[in-house]
Design a binder for these strands. Structure first.
Lengths: 202, 202
DNA sequence: GTTAGCATGTAAGGAGTTACATGATTTT
DNA sequence: AAAATCATGTAACTCCTTACATGCTAAC
């Protein structure tokens, strides 16, 4: 049950939750999600096969459509459950460079508190990276050539930019949560202003 | 000869070209180059071992220094040659997301025409990605939720920013090449005014 | 009727991680 | 002397890619 999910497995389940598809198209959609280069078939098909074996998707071959096999993959109930399970978790893998993008792309199916946890986790990872870059720059002033320091400068700038992107998203998410709560609780309740903007855990 | 060079191998050779070092420190420097998280020992030591076996580095244990083994790795003549060889090449791997950073960090040891080729290769890869993102956005207007389109928007913005960073670097590199050529050719030659007056430099 | 492109798959291997194992040195 | 940190190393495993192999359909 809920066996470990690689980023790819999650991505496939997420795509199939939108609509049943055959592998070739799945690959196209997957790579246009980000600008990423095409996923190899050597990854995709074994992954689909494993999902079928696990009972998370069914592989149907529509009869007599012409056009060769074109196996259409579709989520099962168990697959939907598994996907919901994966989307509910917010462990460190969710803000791991390679996984974050797909997690974000599936935010529409993710609960708001989980969204916030993922965004914050990602942000704190990037903050750690920014710190590393700053101390490296400070420490290495003497022994660094222009290109190395330019690389670090640019890396720091990109990182900081992404941090502020995340901060905006987190704020928006919080606001949306709050107005939702207000609507649910009491339409005339004034906002309590106390939200203490906690640290993020390491 | 000059057997295949993974990004890691190149990085290690590049670091050791600066100064002999032991593995533990190598790891630290390697990861502060970018903000990357620490390279695992399970990668580093086998790589060093392979380089020793290939004759590109020597592993010396300075006697009686205290402090346990602390094997100091140092480039051999063959290693320097191999490094020069790797730095001279500008094949597609040089602008592969994961390799570009280390290639860039070693630009001080790279010939200027090679630098330009790498920067251009990287840029054209990013342009391809930007194109993919734009067409995906245009095509998917109907069936995309807010988060997916926000991801693509942000990805496109970052990509465009990096493209213009690269463009600036390419221009600078070209200008430097040109003034070098002018100096070599005729010291009294007036500047030909054709210089396309790139964006303002930082 | 042969080439080009769609579509699915398998086998081998590369590159790196985690987890484990060991030992020396410094700190508490 | 126990604990933390420095330092090196190995084994198993994951995830993905490349290269190969197959067959069907559409176009020339």
């Amino acid at each position: 049950m809920t066996r470990r999910g690689s980023a790819l497995e999650l991505a496939v389940l997420g795509m199939l939750a939108d609509a049943p598809m055959h592998g070739y198209e799945l690959r196209k959609r997957l790579s246009e999600l980000q600008g990423r280069r095409l996923l190899s078939f050597g990854s995709l098909y074994p992954c689909l096969k494993a999902l079928v074996k696990a009972g998370h998707v069914t592989a149907e071959t529509p009869a007599g459509t012409g056009r060769r096999a074109r196996i259409v993959y579709q989520l099962t109930a168990s697959g939907k459950e598994h996907l919901a399970d994966l989307l509910g978790s917010a462990d460190a893998t969710a803000w791991n460079d390679d996984t974050f993008d797909i997690r974000f792309a599936l935010f529409a199916r993710t609960a708001s508190p989980t969204r916030v946890r993922i965004l914050e986790g990602r942000r704190s990872r990037l903050e750690e990276r920014a710190l590393n870059l700053r101390t490296a720059t400070a420490r290495g002033i003497q022994r660094m050539d222009d290109y190395t320091s330019e690389l670090q400068r640019h890396g720091l700038e990109s990182t900081e930019r992404e941090i502020s992107w995340l901060t905006d998203l987190i704020d928006k998410e919080r606001l949306a949560q709050q107005s939702e709560r207000e609507q649910a609780a009491a339409p005339t309740d004034p906002p309590s202003t106390s939200a203490p903007s906690s640290e993020n855990e390491s």
